[in-house]
Structure formats: C-alpha cells, structure tokens
Nucleic acid binder design. Structure first.
Lengths: 204, 204, 204, 204
DNA sequence: AATGAATGAGCCTTCATTCAT
DNA sequence: TATGAATGAAGGCTCATTCAT
C-alpha cells in the first residue's frame, strides 16, 4: 500500500490560511510572547483544538506566520519590480512598493518586527527568517548586478548595496511600528530612493 | 513605620549591574522568550531569590536590560561623536563607532534585536524602547541641523535623514545578528558613510 | 417510536471483530495507555468515526478486547482439554495448550498482560477481568474435583490447585511478555506439568 | 568550575519518598491510567508544582514508583531468606515472606499488578520492570543452584524453577488484587511450598 | 455506513513569585 | 542579604466524542 501522499483538502487549506492570518493579527496587537493559542482561537471564532488539529503545534503555526510575513510583501513587491525596464526604476519601485505594502498592512509590519525576536539558532523559526533574508538580499543583488551590467550603475559593491536597502527598509519598519506618527513613510521612501539612486547611478 | 528611603548600597548596585549583564547574555543565547529567571540566576551563579530580591519582578529586570542595551552603545558613540569638530566628521564617527561597538559586543546587538520582538504597546518595555528611539533620533537631528546651520550640509530634511541613519544601523544589526558571516560590517559602514555624506554635503 | 431492535448485521459483526483485533494489536505494540482511537483507526485503515459508530465509546471497545483476550485462548484450550479422558491428561493438556496458544499469539499475550495494568475497581473492565478469572478457576476446580472423584488425584485443595495453575500460567506470561528470549515456554510447560502431576496424583 | 554534583538534600529525599509513597497509594486505588499529578498532590497535601519540582516529570515519578514497588518487597524478603541455613528453608521463607509482605501491603501489590501494564519497549518503565524481573530470577537461580551443589536438591533446571516460583507469586498477586476474598494467601503459600519442595528435594 | 473536521475538557508542565529560614 | 523549597496560575497539547455531510 502506498504511503498516503498528504493531500491537503481545500477546506484544510482555507482553515490554515484563516488561522495564520488571525494569528498575525493577534501577534501584532499582543506581541509574540503574549499571544496564546486560546487568544488566536477566540479571535478566529473557533475552538482551541482547531489549531492543534491543523498545525502540528504552536511553533509550527508561528513558523507558517513568519513565512507568510515575508512572502506576502515579497510577492507584492517583486510583481511590481519585475514590470520595470530600467534598473533605476526597479530600485525605485522596490522601495516604493515595500512602503506601499507597509502602509496597506500595518499589522503585518508590526508582526514582522516582533518576529525579529526569535533569534535562537536552535529554532526552525530562526532558520526561516535567515533564509528569507538571504532570499531578499539575493534578489536585490541581482538587480544591482543587472544595473552594472547594463551600464546604468557604476561599480558599487552589490552585496553591500543590497544590505543597505534591506536594512533601511526593515529599520524604518521598526521605527514606524514603535510610533506611527513619528515616521512619514512616503517622504522616507522618496529620500531613500533619491539617496540610493544618487549612490549607484553613473553620473550623467 | 516609614518606607525605606531607597538607599542603593554600593554592593546593591554592583549586584544589579551583574544580574543585568548576565541577563543580556542569557537573552542573546536563548532568546527573550526562552530566558527564565532560573536560567539567569544559574548563569550568574546566584539563587533565584536574588533576582526578585533586587528587582521588583521579571519585567523590571527586562526593562533595565533594554535600557542598558540602548545606553551602553549610546554612551560609547556620543562620547566619540562629541569630540569631532565638523558635522561631516560627526556623522562619519557616529556610524563608525556604532559599528565598532557592535563588533566589540556582538551579544548586546543580538539581545537588542531580540528585544524588538517583545513590544506590546501596553508594556513599559515598549515605552522605554520608543523613548530611546526618539532620543537617538533627536540626537541625530541636532547634528544634521548643525551641519545645515554651519553650511556644511545642504537643505536636507533632518528628521528623515536621522531616521535613515538609525534605520540603516538597526537594520544591518538584524542581518548581522542572523548571520554574522554574511555581513562585512566595516565595509558596510564605509559605504553608508559615503552614501550619507554624498547625500547631505554641499557639493564642493 | 420504538427503540431500534438491535439488529447486528453480518457486516456489522465483521467490522466489530476487525476493529477489536486491530485494537489488540495496537495495545500489544503501544501499550494500553498510549493506544488512541486514532491509532486503531489508522491501523485498521478506517476513519475515526467508524469506531465510535460501532462501539458505544472507547471503554466499550476495550471491554470487548479484554473479553476476546480471555475467550480466544479459553476456547482454544477447553476444546482440547474436553477431548481428554483422564484427569491427569486434562491437566497436562490444559497447560500445554495454553502455552501453545501463547506461542501462536504472542501479541494477544502481551496485550493481556497490559490489560492487568488498567484495573480500577470502579470500572466495568475490572469486573470483566474478575469474572473471567473466576470462570477459569471454576473450570480448573471442576477438573481437579473430577480427578479426586475418579480416584486419580489424592485429596488436594481444589481451589488452591486451580489458583496455582492459573497463577503459574499468567505469571509466566508476564515474564515472557517482558523478555521473550529469557523464557523457554515448552520447557516451562513440561516442568509445570511434571510438578502439578506429582503434586495431585495418587502415588502409584 | 566543577559541575555541581547534585547533592540531594535531606529534605529533598524526604519529600521524594513521601511523594512516591503517596503516588503508589493513588495508583492502587485509581489505577495507573487514571492517576493524575493533581490527584497525587492533593492526596499528599501539597501543591501540584511540588511534584514537578522534585521529579523531572510524571514519567520520572512513575519510574521511581515502579522501582520502589519491586525493591521494597525484595529487601523484605531477601533479608529473611539470607538468614536461613538450608536451601529448602530458603525457598520456603522466600515464598512465605513474599506472601507476608503482600498481606502487610495490599496496596503495593495492587499497584504492582497495575505496573505490569507498561510493556512498551520504548519506555524506561519497561526497562526497569524487565531489569527487576531478571534480578529476582537470578536471585532464585542462585538458591536453586546452591541447593543442588549442597545435595539438598536433585538435578532440576534452575532457571525454570526460578521462573516457576516467580510466576506463581506474581500470578497469585493478580488474582488476589482482583478479588481479595477469593484467595487464601497463607493456604496458597503452604501448598506452593509443599509442591516446590516436593519437586526439587532429593527424595529421602 | 462512513468520513473527518471540529470541539473542549482534562492534564502535564513551566515558571514567576513568595516566604520561612 | 541570600537561599531554595513551595506555590499555583497559565498555557500548550492530547484525544475521546460529536455531528454535518
């Protein structure tokens, strides 16, 4: 008899998505540490058992949340970036659509900042976060390299530039999560785009 | 009977410092969520009771940790920045000495990133972090304003520039905490200084 | 509306037997405590619902298991014993066929030993086990009494002898369940037959 | 710094003993499966936390219980057996003092029967039970061998005799645990001594 | 007859906090 | 000051049971 190939029913997938989304909302408002399964269940309007029925355990759920926290903005952003033709435009759109996503999903941003708190190398949560960072950085490196190849950019260190863009976006997320009113995101994006462009572009 | 007038003995202060420092090390290695008072006590070589004897409760201890996490690098950095005469130099030293502190105190950096993950607006820990951010930002704003006043800088938006510097430093801290080998901090600092300088300085 | 007159369909009976047998296998390999209905269902290749559909509840299933655990060897043994003419032969065959059944159904023996461990006087499971013990003892008493009546046996205390035979068989089952290789069952049977015979038979 | 050598304080040892004894009583009356830590704690008049403070977890406690369940009667019995000079006497006293211990500690016997339910080879509880059985059997083998060497016993198979004695004692424990009034233990002991003696002794 | 998603009570376990010594 | 035994609330997890399909 063949091993059952783990067929995730439709309803199964829907429930999981629902629970993950609710969990993210819960994390955003209570913080990672103070979010209990009972909280999430109550917010989702289901019983506690549902969660451990659909997820192996709490950590499994949190891992899915972290994954979603990275993939959702990533999909949103890359979709827009890939439509641009010039590399200067790609960088501009990368920054702008990241900020756009943040503005549209403040809770996601808050939850993501919270997720930085899981840096115990023993945990799968750590590895997921780490892998996502690498993925993002590589995506940016490819853009910078493309810009250099097409003579749009001068010979800047691609990795460092990628780190800089990622850092300045995750960094502002922290400040904005801590105090919304203290940060004017569109203005920040504009300034960041200006600065990055000035830094990488071949002077005309 | 009168309330004991809070006479922080010398030994008292030493013990507190010791416990706070141990707690930071514990947080760095286990993560915020998994650090128990028993862990800290054992690492410090004292009994559990010592902690609740010297601190009101666990949150009190964590608050002191967060405060230390911000104040230690802050003292290190401002001391060096204030010695600089030109504003371009101040910005350069600000960035460089931040990175220097990180390199000298990796565990502090890791613990600080961890601390971002436990931010619940209802908590004092949140307010402390928020206040520290404001303080840092104001310090940077004053430098930028100074540079503008002394005609070293052109008319850049001070607040945004301050946010950008803070973000790019806290942001890189996350990447470096997640994967030390993936980030060349000195190179990053150099690039960041170059970029910021280029952005603010009046073209000569 | 009249109560459904309990019409145990053929298929119904087949299903029940199948589930009971699977449950016994599960108990033998996982232990009473760790056998869940989900385990049994999965092993039987059916859904969880099937079990509670065919059995009132988990305890009902376990009770049927215990009953089977006693009745199966009992049927096997009495069938053979009743064919013997002399009482000495009856005792010999009683012991030997018990051991034969054990060798042919190791998992049943293991499950039976496990079942001893979950006896709470308040439970029906306890009463079933107790009743089965009485039944077996009475069967053996009748044999011993027969032997005495037909002058094959001397005047031994029938009840005690019955207890002794039952005890030495259930007792060895424990040792054999714990460690198969440490017990040579046929040799044990031979020695037990020899000893019991020597004890009850009228010296010739 | 040397590893702390785990010094079990006096009070620590007392507490552990107390909890173990209470647990045995609880197991005897409720059964292994239905005994919760809360039950034990309440019976012992302490808080739930005490148990997990002094024991690693529930399984750890149960393991200690099983160990005690075997060692207590063992100490009681061997102490008396070792005082006997002849091997016939040793066997007699072995059986009689086992029964004596049972009569004095009915709850221990009941709990021990319950413990037979842990036959999951993966569990430490299994290994403990198994090891204890081996220990007892070896002790009996040594007696039988001694009897043979000193020409008190004829050439019987030592291991099988040892198995038989152990089986007939553990077996009667089951019957007596299930129904006290159905088993006359002293009479049983007498008959068992008579039968074993008759079996092993060199006919005079 | 059968399924399997959903429920929720019950239990183990962790851990901050207290307090007698 | 310091200790560490003891407490008990809180939370994750298991699993028998129910029920709509």
């Amino acid at each position: 008899m063949a091993v059952k190939p783990k067929k995730p029913t439709l309803i199964e997938e829907v429930r999981r998505k629902q629970v993950i989304e609710t969990a993210i909302q819960a994390i955003a408002s209570r913080g990672f540490a103070h979010t209990t399964l009972a909280d999430i269940a109550k917010m989702a309007g289901v019983s506690t058992g549902v969660i451990t029925y659909h997820f192996k355990n709490k950590d499994d759920l949190l891992e899915q949340c972290i994954r979603t926290l990275f993939e959702a903005p990533n999909n949103f952003v890359t979709e827009r970036v890939d439509m641009q033709r010039t590399y200067v435009e790609k960088l501009r759109v990368y920054i702008e659509s990241n900020v756009e996503f943040m503005l549209k999903n403040r809770n996601h941003s808050i939850a993501m900042v919270q997720s930085f708190g899981f840096l115990n190398a023993e945990e799968e949560k750590f590895r997921i976060t780490s892998r996502q960072h690498t993925k993002i950085r590589n995506y940016l490196i490819r853009i910078v390299d493309g810009g250099k190849k097409h003579k749009e950019f001068r010979d800047v260190p691609s990795t460092t530039i990628a780190q800089l863009i990622l850092a300045s976006l995750e960094g502002i997320m922290i400040q904005w999560a801590l105090s919304e009113k203290d940060v004017d995101l569109p203005l920040y994006a504009e300034q960041l785009v200006d600065m990055i462009t000035r830094q990488v572009r071949i002077a005309s």
